[in-house]
Design a protein around this nucleic acid. Structure first.
Lengths: 175, 175
DNA sequence: TCTTGACTGTTACATTATAACATATGATAT
DNA sequence: ATATCATATGTTATAATGTAACAGTCAAGA
């Protein structure tokens, strides 16, 4: 379900609008993912309340990793609370339920592009344009599990983040 | 060079002294790693100055992940500066030169147990005892590189952290 | 000797995160 | 209907983590 076009699209920063959304219909992708989140919530008996839903929409609209305080600022501007716990709680809910990811290296959050598929995410962080994209990580997760197993360690979750240059920045001649 | 004993040893929290160092001679392992750091510095023309050296010793003595402010507190207690940049600069130096690792998930630092071997580290973080251990990560790094390559992403560094239960805690019946 | 560059230290501040408690809301049992 | 309870939201206050910018120090080379 995750093809090269998805990856390409999500490696683009939202600010570079001309290029960023050339390869997908953004409002569709957002709507689809919100709909998917609703489904998941229904299936699992979770409450995708207004703040939580709006926080997810904000992440989807930006299509990049946002700090908790950036999300908070927008939520506050829309009539929700303007204190840190408001954002952190909504984001924690989304992360716990696989609708968003926390990028440890950036202390930031991004929407998950395929929620529900139980996946250990791997994210790629471009040092030039700061964009963040998910990549398939099943082989990575397997390798992590195997290495951990030989140390007797039981893996319950992983943080896998690659730092480097995205294809767009390389094409643009970044070094 | 990295055997099960190394991993076992480093999964033990330093506070649990009775068990923690049963399987290795701690002062030897520290001394050896400091000596190795000196070698590396000499080879590469780096300056392992007193603060830097002491910061590394502190990480080695504790044998666990320490926050920058914990390291700072000790440095300050020994006559070095007591302002955050003192610790951050020493730690950054150690990380940049492969003598220590930054644990993104914990915002903490630990000594590298095999500096000089050019490795992409993978660390295992026990949620029960909070101990942190390194594990061999070549297969993981390969999987990350491959996944990234198919998205056209050039990997320059990775963050690979497994969260779960260490062998000691499992043996102790933790759930 | 004198400059230069790297290192150390400081001030001051920015950013990220959480504990604890008050208020509101919705589901459930009576 | 309404009392109750769990969950969610909002606030105050503060903790924890991290950095920019500049001043002083010191050793190595011109």
């Amino acid at each position: 379900m995750i093809g090269p076009a998805d990856i390409e699209a999500s490696t683009q920063p939202a600010t570079d609008a001309g290029l960023a959304f050339r390869r997908h219909d953004h409002s569709n992708c957002c709507g689809g993912l919100i709909a998917r989140a609703d489904e998941l919530a229904a299936e699992r008996g979770l409450k995708l309340t207004p703040v939580r839903r709006r926080a997810l929409e904000i992440l989807l609209e930006e299509h990049r990793a946002l700090g908790a305080y950036e999300v908070l600022e927008r939520l506050a501007g829309e009539g929700f609370g303007n204190k840190p716990p408001v954002a952190y709680r909504a984001l924690d809910f989304l992360v716990e339920n696989g609708m968003a990811h926390r990028i440890a290296r950036l202390n930031a959050f991004m929407a998950c592009m395929h929620p529900g598929d139980d996946h250990t995410p791997m994210v790629m962080i471009c040092r030039a344009c700061r964009s963040v994209a998910e990549a398939p990580a099943e082989p990575v997760a397997a390798a992590v599990a195997e290495s951990a197993a030989s140390a007797g360690f039981a893996v319950e979750g992983t943080v896998v983040e690659a730092l480097g240059l995205c294809s767009a920045c390389r094409a643009r001649g970044e070094v």
